[in-house]
């Protein structure tokens, strides 16, 4: 579905991310974890076409309309109601106004926002705004969904509920996902594959982990799967090596 080969991303002369290769298959949930400044978000933006790559290539048979992105901020148009925000993408992709509104209403209902369609974003809670943003992206029926820590700003309970909704939806629709997160538990509980990035600048993909937890997933039960704890410990240890590595060398010297 998507293959990135030896991708290098730079701000100025110095590469932030260097020679990164990864692939996402249809219906596969892939996470990118790593320290801040390792170029995770930049890679996501490059896949979406919002940022130029300095070297390497990103190959996909998908059209740009087949790829959806959820940012850390919900980025809803504040002057549009929830239903107008969701129907905007549909209208931009050829639906007439009536059909776009009907589809938008159906998506809001599916995400538990029945009766809130006429509200402006400021009249919605953080969790409700995230659901509107999710409806806005999923209404376009993307085959690949890119998510840049989309639920980081939510409180723990709302976050767990919205995340479970996302998992249910991507599993039922067979959507491929690339998630950027700092949360190792979240990465393992959600993903089929986790990539660990090293420290930037000149960050690279240092490890790839397969997560053998079966689907459909329940985010609470996934955490009690026998493979979860060992994988979490390994990932945490590798991440600590990546973050503290240079310091350890200095101490040894």
């Amino acid at each position: 579905m998507l293959r990135a080969e030896n991708v290098t991303l730079s701000y100025g002369a110095e590469p932030v991310l260097e020679g990164a290769s990864l692939s996402i298959e249809a219906g596969q949930f892939v996470s990118l974890v790593g320290p801040s400044g390792s170029g995770k978000s930049s890679l996501l933006r490059a896949i979406m076409g919002l940022q130029e790559i300095s070297d390497g290539r990103i190959e996909t048979p998908l059209q740009s309309t087949d790829i959806g992105i959820l940012f850390q901020d919900d980025a809803l148009l504040p002057w549009r109601t929830a239903i107008e925000n969701v129907s905007l993408g549909l209208r931009l992709n050829g639906r007439d106004r009536g059909r776009a509104v009907a589809e938008a209403e159906a998506w809001l209902e599916r995400l538990g926002l029945t009766g809130l369609g006429r509200r402006y974003p400021r009249e919605l809670s953080g969790g409700q705004r995230k659901r509107v943003a999710l409806a806005q992206v999923l209404a376009l029926k993307p085959r690949l969904l890119l998510m840049d820590e989309p639920f980081a700003s939510l409180d723990a309970i709302v976050r767990a509920r919205v995340t479970q909704d996302v998992v249910n939806l991507v599993e039922s629709e067979g959507i491929g996902v690339l998630l950027v997160t700092h949360d190792l538990e979240e990465a393992i509980a959600l993903s089929d594959v986790v990539y660990l990035l090293s420290n930037g600048p000149h960050a690279h993909i240092s490890q790839r982990y397969s997560v053998p937890i079966p689907r459909p997933r329940n985010l609470v039960k996934s955490r009690s799967h026998p493979t979860f704890a060992p994988l979490y410990e390994r990932l945490w240890s590798d991440l600590s090596d990546v973050v503290d590595g240079p310091r350890r060398i200095r101490t040894a010297a």
């Binding site: 919002l50 980025a75 905007l88 993408g89």
Partner: peptide, 26 residues
């Protein structure tokens, strides 16, 4: 103008005129 809104409209499939109408004008 909030760049995130411009990017949001672009990623939803909006072109230059859509960005002007949906983001800059309001």
């Amino acid at each position: 103008v909030d760049r995130r809104l411009v990017e949001r409209v672009r990623t939803l499939g909006g072109g230059r005129w859509t960005v002007l109408r949906e983001v800059y004008l309001p």
